[in-house]
Design a protein around this nucleic acid. Sequence first.
DNA 1: GCCTATATTGAGACATATTCTCACTTGGAG
DNA 2: CTCCAAGTGAGAATATGTCTCAATATAGGC
Lengths: 136, 136
Amino acid sequence: MGVFKTHLRRSGYKITAPREAVLAVLENEKGHLHPSDILLKARAIHAGVGRATVYRTLDILKMLNLVRPIYINEAGPSYMRVAGGHHHLVCSNCGKVVEFDACNAGDLQRKLARKHRFVIQSHLLEFYGQCEDCRN
Amino acid sequence: MGVFKTHLRRSGYKITAPREAVLAVLENEKGHLHPSDILLKARAIHAGVGRATVYRTLDILKMLNLVRPIYINEAGPSYMRVAGGHHHLVCSNCGKVVEFDACNAGDLQRKLARKHRFVIQSHLLEFYGQCEDCRN
DNA sequence: GCCTATATTGAGACATATTCTCACTTGGAG
DNA sequence: CTCCAAGTGAGAATATGTCTCAATATAGGC
């Protein structure tokens, strides 16, 4: 059974077919998705899922810190699973996004958590500039 | 004279009163602003600034890499000046944002720039979690 | 300072994204 | 199995962003 589903159930949310479809879509997704993509994919699993249900489910998942909105370069936010860190190298000109792994945020994270009394679950590190093709 | 104004002029853009109002708002802002806030503040400087002018000016500033969209927790993106790095500790629950200074992204930035042939101007590092008040 | 070509403007139409409302449905505790 | 609060989809309402166009204002040439 999906992790998301377990979390929702444990938090007292009912597991309905439309909701389950949305959960499955998000859980199986490696990258990030727009709400409209989520709607389409969810409808492929359970025909007739409504737009509102996608947004409602996203709200719950955000509250439970299972999913996080992220802005890359498009019109609206995309959503992705919360899982440690995400690292992007973004070209401000053409919008190309390169993902990278190396990240030394661990120490800083511990320090900040202690100092500001936060429980930290994930982070986002993005560098902005111009890619090879776009720098003239 | 404002830095933004100088940049626009140098790039061949005309300096008009409405545009100047928008520039002033963004230039004087320390944090981040929604387009709707920008509109209001710009209208306080020059009555009658149109919504389109705000978006048009933001587009120019984005192209010139003077300003960058950023997603915190609200509905849409906010905009902030590009200036090295921005560092936020964000509570996913209540939306509180703590800014911090310490950041060791410099080395990584140089490495990535070389490897992916990017010219990097700025970065964003955000940690997500729950603040003291929100963690139960 | 005046003139002109042209970039820029605001209004409001349009397009898109998100939220809300409400009558109907359904999961799951008892 | 029953019951009812939680959840649902449709579509209205709102929020956000883009486009068009006639009117205006800037900056450079004189």
